[in-house]
Nucleic acid binder design. Structure first.
Lengths: 223, 223
DNA sequence: GTCTATACATCGATAGAC
DNA sequence: GTCTATCGATGTATAGAC
């Protein structure tokens, strides 16, 4: 691996690690899994390459051959797991505009989204990214883009269409999406951001989301 | 300083550092200022006691005499600066209930609160606390308590009173407060959490907060 | 590509003089 | 209380054999 390939990055500044070659893929995946676990529990600075070496079962030199150094390993691992985690929810925005019962559709959509976001592993990853933003600003950009733009975009289009059709009256669709997300998902996420041991209570989840959607509809639904 | 005094903590687990004695107070303050700056820029793990020593101008042994170890220094510094930063905003809740123009009062209150919360130094402190929650859960509890309960409590009482008076119709005042905060402050805070260089645009701040308050009033104001 | 062994720096914390 | 000097551990990263 020459110096140029070693320092290549994509448009977000996430390192591009050269592709597969043989069964060294399994070792690479073992390194990634071990590194993610170590980074999640220790943070970037306190995580040690020795610990990742022991967790992964490969030698330390192999890790450096594959990822170059600690910073690039961190960026590759966190930047790689992020889009893959959120891949399941992206296509649900377009169904909102055609739903027969808008209120039920909004509740269903925000509930799914909230359940995903409140998963303990995702909350931990979020805290890790937030805490390391000064060191890795690219990850902050990537996180915001993956978690919000991916869903806010289709939802904004849906509201624009519903406004044109007369079902909703939304002068600023992008802001309305932000408000809907904040009033549902955001309320619960705030609590879980600062408390690691709080369980997700199903009854409260339903109560908060329903109330948030009704808050949204009270302002934007046409009479 | 004996072992018992050295390990004393208050109800949140924040170390209690023995009181003043002489002009060693200036050295202690210099240590606190230097430590806060170092922790904010480097995080807990990457911050070095050597760097804090150099920043503060005192010797490393003096720091250990005053604060015991790195963990206690961190807890004392972060746990100490937090309540003091938020001290200015706590008494504004009771004025909401008596305001002649409720909409204007809500806009004024949430605007002040948002301006405080979006200050770069407070956003940095917030990221630091979030990133170190696994290591210092007490700070997460303290942060949530200081930043939210302190303002949510009086606001909840105000909404309860306004409900009894018939100005508002709020079946769940505590949830309504969370929604108001999320729809105003929360929308802007989310963006600045993941981006360090984004400036606070006055026009957008006014636009988002006004729209958030109107969203709130559309649901909870009586006709 | 993968390993073992190691170089070299920096870390948190302390001993002992004053 | 405050300093200088230092200890032992651990960190990242690499050299060289296979």
């Amino acid at each position: 691996m020459d110096a140029e390939t070693m320092n290549a990055t994509d448009e977000y500044g996430i390192p591009i690690i050269p592709g597969p070659s043989d069964s060294a893929q399994r070792k690479r995946q073992a390194i990634i899994d071990a590194a993610l676990a170590e980074f999640l529990t220790e943070g970037y600075s306190a995580a040690s390459m020795d610990a990742i070496t022991q967790r992964s079962g490969v030698s330390k030199a192999t890790i450096y051959k594959h990822f170059g150094n600690k910073e690039r390993l961190f960026l590759a691992v966190v930047g790689g797991v992020l889009p893959q985690t959120y891949a399941g929810l992206q296509c649900c925005g377009s169904t909102i505009a055609q739903a027969p019962d808008l209120r039920a559709a909004l509740i269903s959509f925000t509930t799914d989204w909230t359940r995903l976001v409140l998963r303990p592993d995702i909350m931990s990853l979020r805290r890790l990214v937030i805490g390391e933003i000064d060191r890795f600003p690219q990850l902050g950009q990537l996180w915001y883009r993956v978690t919000y733009d991916m869903n806010n975009g289709p939802l904004t289009e849906a509201f624009t269409e519903l406004d044109a059709r007369g079902t909703l009256e939304v002068p600023d669709p992008a802001l309305a999406v932000q408000q809907l997300v904040a009033a549902t998902l955001g309320v619960l996420q705030l609590v879980h951001t600062f408390s690691t041991d709080t369980e997700v209570d199903e009854a409260e989840l339903s109560r908060v989301i329903t109330s948030g959607v009704d808050l949204f509809l009270a302002r934007y639904a046409t009479a």
